[in-house]
Design a protein around this nucleic acid. Structure first.
Lengths: 208, 208
DNA sequence: CAAAAATTTGACTCTTGAGTCAAATTTATT
DNA sequence: AATAAATTTGACTCAAGAGTCAAATTTTTG
């Protein structure tokens, strides 16, 4: 293992890493703009300017605008799946697991520009299908937790899918009002949201 | 009051009414398309085709595409304000009023193509401001109900605005998944959503 | 039916923004 | 320094779609 070997192995890896990092930055910048102004109200030129580049340069990192939107979606979904993974398989009851998951999801979305985009229609066939598949997979995993909670008696009976749609709305609606640079604290939001979600589902006798 | 008088008074009125009705139809058709595909993925030509017309004809009823989007927003907000008006000033406590309002809101949005659009960014200055003002007015009215509920002890204490954002998300998220032609019953959705919202807010001691 | 008013259209212009590409520039390698 | 590889750019093409308008068509009215 001489210097030569080290270089031929490490250098190219670093190169790719550099490239990949810059690519990420592009997706990031685009994502923030998309969140604020929407996909179609954000031009490639704008995205480039946010990075001190020229539109043409972006195409060195990315196939086209649609791919950027796709990756934006994916980036969040990946993070969400990571969260689900972390909280999986505890011996807690359904409601408890859901509580932890939901709380972390809110925290995830109130941090560093990571945010759920809702514009799926701007993706063509293949890509759109991919995103929807991914979204449904996540919803399915959360639904499964809810179902488990209903089965173990911790969550009030009801249509599990509806149950999930209800509080997923809160997450998706975040983009419309939450300002990362504002004075609202992500953790405080997470706390109140989580309590509201949890109390809405807890299976106890609630007086009229 | 001869025939002449009747005509000069009635006819023009009817004319305008016809015109206004067709205008409404344009907004309606556009709104449905916007909901499904988004504003920018819907061309004026498509909207026209949905009505058996030509793009050019639309401009007889409407100033431009932006105006259509504006009216789409307004149409829903108007209906929502109507609902709020209906339930106003009962002697009920805050939570009760909120329950009725919310239930009716869900029903409103699961009926006849009336649906909340989220794309505000595609509106320019004046129009955008108008829509946001209207939206905030509605949120303020609902927030006021929540505040009253917290004051009279029917709703769990907390940041009222956060409280409202949470369940307003459920309404806005409806568009993403609810299919009017599907087999889900609007009333059933309203029932479960309302229960979930209400339980989430009810001010009782909830065990861990 | 004829005149007038209302409605619709075909064919057009214009702008915006995505995407391309050969050449220039910068960075790494020997 | 010279060469090669990576990165960036200016200047371009191209398509889509919004909006216009004079003329054609349809509807209403007297």
């Amino acid at each position: 293992m001489n210097a030569q070997t080290n270089m031929t192995i490490k250098e190219p890896f670093n190169r790719e890493k550099q490239h990949e990092n810059k690519r990420r930055a592009v997706i990031r910048a685009a994502g923030e703009a998309f969140r604020r102004q929407g996909y179609h109200n954000t031009s490639m030129t704008e995205i480039a300017q946010a990075l001190g580049l020229t539109k043409a340069a972006l195409y060195y990192y990315v196939k086209n605008k649609e791919e950027i939107l796709f990756e934006c979606h994916l980036m969040v979904y990946e993070a969400m799946e990571g969260l689900l993974e972390i909280h999986k398989g505890g011996d807690k009851d359904g409601l408890s697991e859901l509580t932890y998951v939901f709380s972390d999801l809110v925290k995830l979305l109130t941090r560093d520009g990571l945010s759920l985009l809702t514009d799926v229609s701007s993706l063509g066939g293949e890509w759109k299908a991919g995103v929807l598949l991914r979204r449904r997979a996540i919803e399915a995993r959360i639904t499964a937790i809810v179902e488990r909670g209903m089965a173990d008696g911790s969550i009030t009976p009801g249509d599990p899918r509806l149950t999930v749609f209800f509080f997923m709305g809160a997450l998706n609606w975040l983009n419309a009002w939450y300002d990362p640079d504002g004075r609202m604290d992500g953790d405080a939001i997470a706390d109140q949201f989580t309590r509201q979600m949890r109390n809405g589902l807890k299976n106890i006798v609630i007086p009229d």
